[in-house]
Simulated assay, not measured.
Amino acid sequence: MIDEMNGINESDTWHDAIAVFTEVSASSTEATRPNIFRIAGFPRRETVSSNVLAYFFDPAEGHGLKDLMLKALLRTIHKEDMDVSDVSVSTEASTGKNNRIDILLDLPDISIAIENKVDAGLYNDLADYRSWAAKQSNNDSAIVIVLHPFNNFVLKDHPSAQGLVVEQDLFDVHYDELFSNALGMLGEYSLDADPRAVDLLQQFIDNYSPERKQKKMDNTSTDITQFVSQANGIEQQLVNVRQSFEKYTEAVRSKLQTVHADLISRWAEESPVNGKSVTLADNWEWPKRHKPFDNQYYAQSFKLEKPGSSDVDRIITCEFFFNIKFDDGYVVSDPESGSFNTIWYKAYWGGLGTDQKPTVRITNPYNETLDAKLTDSNEDIKKAVEAAVERTLKDNWNI
C-alpha cells in the first residue's frame, strides 16, 4: 500500500522513508546559546535581575561600559540631559517605613528609585520610595521608575501611584525599551569595555527580554509545525531510525571502551613506544554520559608522560573517538570528511581540561582519521591506535 502524500510503501524499510524526508530549515531558527541565568537556575529571579542592573547602572564598576545603561535609562524617560558625572548605586535601600527600594540611583541632579518587577504584581508604596529618594538627593529632586516586562501595563490610576504624577515623578519603563536603547548605544561603548561584561549584558538581555522570549516561542512553534509536516506518514520509520542509531552508538561505545581498556592494560606492562620510557599518567572517556542524537563526540583518551622532562613538554594527550559530525568546544568536524565507520584521532600538549587552542594542538589537521574502521577487529583498531600514538610521541619528543 502506498501513502500517496509521502510516496512511502508501508512495507518498505526506514531507509526509503528517510530518502523522501526533506528537512526544510526554518529561517528564524537560532541555536540555543549558553546563558548563565538559565544554567544557574534563576531565569526569573527578581533579586538577580536587580543586582545585575545595579552593576551595569554603576559607571564605576569594572564592566568598562561606563554610563551606558544609565544613559539608556535616562533616554527612555526623556531625561538624557541629566548629569551622570557622580553616581551612587545601591540595592535594597530601606525607607523610613521599612519599605525596600530595589535599586536607588543618586545622581547630582536627581535621585531615582527603581521598582523592578519581573513576575510579581505592583503593590508597593511608591510615594514612600520617592520621599525617601528625595532625602538622598542634593536638591530634594527625585522620581520613581517602575521597570517591568509586562504589556498593557498602566500606571495611571493604579493604587500604587497615589500621590505621584505619571510622566512627572513616576515613570513606566518596559524592559525592552531599556534594552533597545542600550543596544543602540552599545557600539560606541563596547571597544573600551571588558568583553566578558559585554557578553554578560547580552545574556541578561536574552534572558529578561520579553520580545526575545516571544521570538523563541514563535521559532519553537515553527520548528514543531515543520517537523510534523515533514514526518507525516513516516512516524514509525523515523522512530526506527532513532532506535537503530542508538543501538549503533551504544555498540561502538562498548567496542571502543574495550579497545581502550586493553591498551591501558598492555601499556601498564610496557611502554607504548617500544624500548622508550613513557608513562601512562592518566586515562579517561568523554563525555561520561552518552546522549544519542546529541553531540556524538565521544573520546577515549590517554595522557602520556615523558619522565625527566620539564613541565612544558612532558605531557601529551592522545584521543580516539567516533562519529560523523562533532563539536568538542574547540574544533567542529566537516561531516563530508567522515562516515559512521570512521574513527577519529587527535593529540595535544597537556592533559584533561587543557584549553585546546592552536598553540597546544599537535596533530595536523587537528582531527584526523585513524587507519582503521569501526567494522575492523579490535586487534586491528588497537594496532592503528598504537601506531598513531607512537608516531605522535616520536615526532614530538624526538625519541
Rank of each mutant, 00 (worst) to 15 (best):
T363N: 14
R130W: 06
D16Y: 15
S49P: 01
L200R: 00
L393G: 07
E167P: 03
E61S: 04
A31L: 03
L155G: 11
H174R: 05
P307Y: 15
D376F: 04
A17C: 03
I39M: 12
Y348F: 15
R45L: 02
V118T: 04
G121E: 10
H158Q: 06
N295K: 08
Q300P: 03
S209N: 00
F227L: 06
L164I: 08
N151H: 08
A261P: 05
G41K: 04
I103V: 10
M185F: 07
K216T: 01
W286G: 00
H63G: 05
I145E: 14
F340P: 00
L107K: 02
R44H: 14
K117G: 04
G41I: 01
A182T: 11
Q236E: 14
D218E: 12
K255T: 02
L374S: 01
D157P: 05
V84N: 09
G233Y: 00
A347M: 01
P365D: 07
D16Q: 11
R212V: 01
I381H: 04
I145M: 11
K117R: 10
N99G: 00
P59Y: 11
S221I: 14
A197H: 08
V259T: 00
A17K: 01
R44N: 13
D125N: 09
K156N: 11
G7N: 10
K288T: 04
P335D: 13
D355W: 15
F171Y: 15
Y123A: 01
E23Y: 06
S244L: 07
S88C: 07
T342V: 12
V87G: 03
P195H: 05
N364R: 15
G121L: 09
L105F: 13
K213Y: 13
I103C: 03
E61F: 09
F57T: 03
L53M: 13
L374Q: 06
D328S: 07
V239I: 14
I114T: 01
T222N: 08
I343M: 03
K216L: 01
D109A: 06
N398K: 10
W267G: 10
V332P: 00
M69T: 12
F57Q: 09
G184R: 08
K135F: 06
T13M: 04
I264S: 00
E92S: 05
P59Q: 09
Q203R: 10
V52M: 14
